[in-house]
Design a protein around this nucleic acid. Structure first.
Lengths: 175, 175
DNA sequence: GTCCGCTAGGTGAAAAGTCGCCCATCACCC
DNA sequence: GGGTGATGGGCGACTTTTCACCTAGCGGAC
């Protein structure tokens, strides 16, 4: 499961609770994956039963105790195996293209509306990616870890740019 | 469910069996969605119980009878509602970026290997999209339906191009 | 004083999707 | 004569994902 791997990846950076993980998913991971809270807690439990992580309860003042999950040696091995293993190509999934594909029967302006809505979304995404990118520490980009994390954001930006160009072309030539 | 809509879309073009649908998914739809055989049959059954499609059994010589599914008026309405309804933005899902994100601990050459594997995949995809694109009838592209169907392929090509450029940039500056 | 939001960690149920397997017939190749 | 693959239509079990709900204490706003 990809989620288990991503969680292992985060745990390899530092021990975390399910709550911490959810916050990471919602911020730094969000541009390429998202995870439901329930799914995170269940996957975390699975990692523990599989011996890839261990839990340590850390009491806090004024707050509920943290169930801190630590990656184990076996977990690090599993993570390494995933990172260096063969690429599993996953099928394309673009619901928006499904609409475009079947929009031949719509009026011209309805199609333009569809494209405009998509453009608005893309622009918004582009902006939020740019903001995230600008917040990155320039110095951190010179080491490989920081560079690759930034690269995943650049990936998002590049694809949103491609999307905008495609939208322009499609609308420009729309019969 | 998106799958139900895509199936309705295909049924709106012509009546089909589950088998026909699977073939369409594997050819013309494959660049933006894919569907499991079992899933198609179950969704088809659901469409019938929901009154969005009806079945007609058509016997054949030498072959099993076709369970031809026809879209109903209610089905066309549902399809129209989907096409003209608000865009539901779906979260990003890029397992490959998950690898990149956590590959900071790998050796430089291992990261290059990852990028190279991705590049090979992208080039292959690019080629298959180009082949499909070339097979399209030029004349059909002047009407809106054909134009939009081709546009979904162009979308794939544009994004694969963006992916290749991104790969070049990432590898070129890799620390 | 009461409600909202943050910290923290869940459960239960249903929907969605995947995987392997099954049935049948015909055509074709070796 | 046996295997493969196309035509056609499924079933059952499983995993993955989502949705709604629940617990509980604390801090601050109204």
């Amino acid at each position: 499961m990809i989620l288990a791997r991503l969680i292992l990846g985060l745990l390899s950076l530092s021990p975390m609770t399910g709550y911490d993980l959810k916050k990471h998913f919602d911020s730094s991971i969000n541009h390429f994956w998202n995870a439901d809270k329930a799914q995170i807690y269940r996957t975390l439990a699975q990692l523990v039963t599989d011996g890839l992580a261990t839990v340590r309860t850390v009491p806090q003042e004024n707050y509920p105790a943290r169930q801190e999950h630590h990656i184990t040696a076996a977990g690090r091995t599993a993570l390494q195996d995933w990172l260096t293993g063969a690429l599993d190509r996953q099928p394309a999934r673009e619901p928006f293209l499904g609409r475009i594909f079947f929009s031949g029967g719509l009026a011209r302006d309805e199609v333009r509306g569809l494209l405009a809505a998509r453009r608005a979304e893309a622009r918004e995404l582009h902006h939020s990616y740019r903001v995230l990118r600008a917040e990155l520490d320039e110095a951190a980009l010179t080491d490989r870890r920081g560079y690759l994390m930034a690269a995943t954001l650049d990936h998002g930006i590049a694809h949103v740019d491609a999307e905008l160009s495609w939208l322009d072309a499609v609308e420009g030539n729309l019969p």
